[in-house]
């Protein structure tokens, strides 16, 4: 199954991921960074499986992230 990965530390909080894919992303009111929802957190690297049908949107999100900290694998 494909995975979505966010290297959260370098997030600059632009909000484009939440805009494009609200069901996966939420801007944190605590530190202003995006959080990948329902993800496992290993040392500030968030990982979660995604449905095949979300693959394309996720790839678009990864491309849109200005600091390139989102990956689809």
């Amino acid at each position: 199954m494909a995975k979505l990965i966010q290297y959260r530390e370098k997030c600059i909080g632009c909000g484009i991921c939440e805009e494009l894919q609200p069901e996966y992303w939420r801007m944190s009111m605590k530190d202003g960074k995006a959080t990948l929802l329902h993800a496992a957190n290993k040392k500030n690297i968030l990982i979660r499986p995604i449905h095949q049908s979300d693959f394309e949107t996720s790839t678009n999100v990864a491309n849109a992230c200005p600091v390139k900290i989102i990956q689809v694998r």
Binding site: G13, G15, M27, S28, M29, K30, G32
Partner: peptide, 9 residues
């Protein structure tokens, strides 16, 4: 600044 930045600010 966006709404989600206020706390960090």
């Amino acid at each position: 600044m966006y709404n989600h930045d206020i706390k960090l600010l």
